[in-house]
Amino acid sequence: MDAALARAWVQAIAAAIDEHTDQLTQLDSAIGDADHGANMRRGFSACLDALADTPLETPGDVLVRTGATLISSVGGAAGPLYGSAFRAIGRALAGPDAGAEQVLSALTEGLTAVKRLGAAVPGDKTIVDAYTPAVAAFEQELWEGGGLAAAAAHAAEAAEAGARATTTMQARKGRASYLGPRSVGHQDPGATSTALIFRALAEVTVR
């Protein structure tokens, strides 16, 4: 992954969020406060502006800038969580061109940052429920000899399955947890946006 690919990833995320804003908002409306779609759209739109301004040499620079911009523009829990994730991913991609193994360890750093800040574990009905299987699938594919594109494709599928699996979970973190058992039967909006982020990575790595 070089700086151009990192940029393409962020642009693809912004396009996917834009397309799914209403879906994210409706999911959040069912078990939260109906702001996830609008907040993510505002955040990634701000990222496009922030990246357009400056020439950035490494994928790390692009993704750290993306994370900082998300923290400054999203608000809610999603801002610090995704912002910290992208900053952590970016910090692990210092060179001009990262191989698939390095991308794996960067994605793992991002997951660690999310878990540390949100104190969520798998099964809590959060971002972690899509992110964790995505990283596992990415790693599995590398073990089996696949490259970046194949690993990203498997990660996207695993993230989507993970997001769907949140439907039957009772939320134990975030605003949905206030609903108790009433949170069951709804897909988690945060896990859903995480799946969009991994799908975007799969899309740009096959280009």
Binding site: D33, A34, D35, A38, N39, R42, I71, S72, S73, V74, G75, G76, A77, G79, P80
Partner: peptide, 11 residues
């Protein structure tokens, strides 16, 4: 004040 029902950002 943050956006509607959204916490303010750190800045």
């Amino acid at each position: 004040p943050g956006e509607v029902f959204t916490s303010p950002v750190p800045d």
